[in-house]
Amino acid sequence: MKLRKVSAAAATALVLALTATACGGGDNNDDNGSDSGSGGGKKIKIGIKYDQPGLGLKEPDGTFSGFDVDVATYVAKELGYEPDQIDFVETKSADRENALARGDVKFIAATYSINDERAKKVDFAGPYLLAHQDLLVKADSDIAKGTDLNGKKLCSVTGSTSAQNVKDTIAPKAQLRTNSGYSECVAALQSGAVDALTTDDSILAGYAAQEQYKGKFKLAGLKLSNENYGIGVKKGDTATVDKINAALEKMVSDGSWEKAVKENFGPAGYQNEPAPKIGDIVK
């Protein structure tokens, strides 16, 4: 009789243990990649742009292309995730900090320029590319320098610092117009609703190289600012920052970085800067 009581207790304990294990299974498959990065059968969510040719673009067939996509894919592999384990999440400029704070994504590679204000809210790995703010104008435009924008209509995207930088330091009489994405700004430039689009030269080069825009636009060739692209990580997640930095260094050393630059920017004749050193922020 006593033996049966002990066996029943043991059976009850076993059921409870199995139940707890089953309930906790979801935590071991956190699909934002917030585990140790061991990969396995899990997924990792990475924030990118969907509308930036040459950097982060969702193609009509649902695949993704661009330099940021290649960098993110390389980094994810170093963290233990194969390409089919990556979920690319559209992350607009105005929502990048919130997406990381909410845990929607593990990291963000989306033309994310490192600056002091953003660094208060998120941690950055990198930089992995040094770009420069420039202007995209129509091929026959007479805008040749920043001050020519006074009295002109200037477009950029919500959450970007580029247009405000122009108005604050270069052309205070410029008329700012913001849209949710760069595609809308390019359409406005083509229709004549705006006179110029400002953002990083890498982004502008991607648009200028698209088949439907070839010969219609030109880059003004100005270096209005230095934009150090970093990979955004949730504030305090220093372990992930260290892993990403190691991955970026390896990407440069094994030639994958240079290959990605040529494949994504080469058709536009983009003159890229050399690969920056980790932690080397050019002001």
Rank of each mutant, 00 (worst) to 15 (best):
F107Q: 00
D68Y: 08
R177C: 15
T161F: 15
K77F: 12
V122M: 03
S162A: 15
K42S: 14
F107L: 09
D140P: 07
L55S: 04
L176G: 04
K58M: 13
D84M: 11
K152Y: 12
D87L: 13
Q133F: 08
R102I: 06
A139R: 10
F88D: 00
K145D: 14
G40Q: 11
V122A: 00
K49F: 15
K145Y: 13
G66R: 01
Q133D: 08
T73K: 01
V166G: 02
I48N: 00
V69Q: 05
K152L: 14
L154K: 02
L136F: 04
L149P: 03
R177S: 15
L135W: 07
A72I: 03
I48F: 07
T158S: 14
V157Q: 02
G56I: 02
T111F: 09
K45H: 11
S180Q: 14
G37L: 11
K42Y: 12
K121F: 04
K77I: 11
F124M: 06
G47S: 07
L55A: 06
D116Y: 07
K43N: 12
T63H: 12
Y50W: 13
D123S: 06
T111M: 10
N165Y: 13
G80M: 07
V122R: 02
T169H: 15
E117R: 03
A174K: 03
F88W: 06
G159T: 04
V157S: 03
I44Y: 08
A110H: 04
G151E: 12
E78P: 07
G159I: 01
K92Y: 15
F67P: 00
A139M: 15
S156K: 02
H132V: 04
A139P: 11
A144Q: 12
S36W: 13
T91I: 05
K121P: 02
K145G: 14
S93M: 10
Y50V: 11
P172G: 12
F67M: 06
D116W: 06
G62W: 10
I143E: 05
S156W: 01
L79W: 03
S156M: 04
H132R: 06
L136G: 00
A171S: 07
D134V: 08
Q52I: 11
E117G: 05
H132N: 07
A99I: 02
D148F: 06
K153G: 09
T161W: 12
L129C: 07
A72T: 05
K42I: 12
I143N: 05
A101H: 02
G103M: 01
P127R: 01
S93C: 09
G54Y: 06
D35R: 03
D51R: 08
R177D: 15
V105R: 01
I170W: 04
T147V: 13
D61S: 10
Y74R: 01
V122D: 00
G151M: 11
G33P: 04
I143G: 05
P53G: 08
Q175T: 11
C155H: 08
G33R: 02
D140A: 10
K106P: 09
Y81I: 09
P60Q: 09
A119C: 11
